[in-house]
Computed example of a mutant assay.
Amino acid sequence: MAEGVGDEFAEEIEDSTVRHVDRTGIGTSSTWGRRAEHPNGPGTSWEAITGLRIQCNKVHDVGGDGIVVQTAKGALVEHTHVNGFNRTHAVVIAYETGVLVPAGGTFRDTPRHPQGPL
Results as ranks from 00 to 15, higher is better:
residue 118 L to Q: 10
residue 86 N to R: 14
residue 11 E to T: 15
residue 91 V to I: 07
residue 44 T to C: 07
residue 99 V to Q: 13
residue 114 P to G: 10
residue 86 N to C: 06
residue 99 V to A: 14
residue 34 R to M: 09
residue 25 G to K: 00
residue 110 T to C: 04
residue 51 G to P: 12
residue 20 H to S: 13
residue 34 R to D: 03
residue 59 V to Y: 01
residue 103 A to P: 01
residue 84 G to P: 01
residue 77 V to W: 02
residue 53 R to T: 15
residue 44 T to Y: 05
residue 23 R to I: 10
residue 29 S to Q: 10
residue 97 T to C: 15
residue 75 A to K: 08
residue 64 G to T: 01
residue 106 T to W: 14
residue 5 V to H: 06
residue 48 A to I: 11
residue 65 D to V: 03
residue 78 E to Q: 15
residue 81 H to A: 01
residue 32 W to T: 10
residue 6 G to Q: 05
residue 10 A to L: 11
residue 5 V to N: 04
residue 105 G to H: 05
residue 28 T to R: 06
residue 83 N to I: 01
residue 16 S to Y: 02
residue 80 T to H: 08
residue 3 E to F: 04
residue 105 G to E: 06
residue 102 P to E: 07
residue 69 V to E: 02
residue 87 R to Y: 13
residue 68 V to Q: 09
residue 114 P to S: 08
residue 25 G to H: 02
residue 97 T to D: 10
residue 75 A to C: 08
residue 69 V to M: 02
residue 82 V to I: 07
residue 74 G to H: 05
residue 104 G to H: 07
residue 17 T to N: 00
residue 116 G to R: 12
residue 64 G to D: 00
residue 24 T to E: 04
residue 72 A to S: 15
residue 118 L to H: 02
residue 57 N to H: 02
residue 45 S to Y: 01
residue 9 F to N: 05
residue 8 E to G: 06
residue 39 P to S: 06
residue 17 T to Q: 00
residue 75 A to R: 03
residue 82 V to K: 04
residue 115 Q to D: 13
residue 76 L to K: 14
residue 80 T to P: 00
residue 46 W to P: 04
residue 99 V to N: 06
residue 58 K to E: 01
residue 102 P to D: 09
residue 72 A to G: 08
residue 76 L to S: 14
residue 87 R to M: 14
residue 32 W to A: 09
residue 116 G to A: 07
residue 12 E to Y: 13
residue 11 E to H: 05
residue 69 V to A: 06
residue 116 G to E: 11
residue 94 A to T: 09
residue 21 V to Y: 06
residue 69 V to D: 02
residue 98 G to N: 11
residue 9 F to D: 06
residue 49 I to S: 10
residue 44 T to M: 06
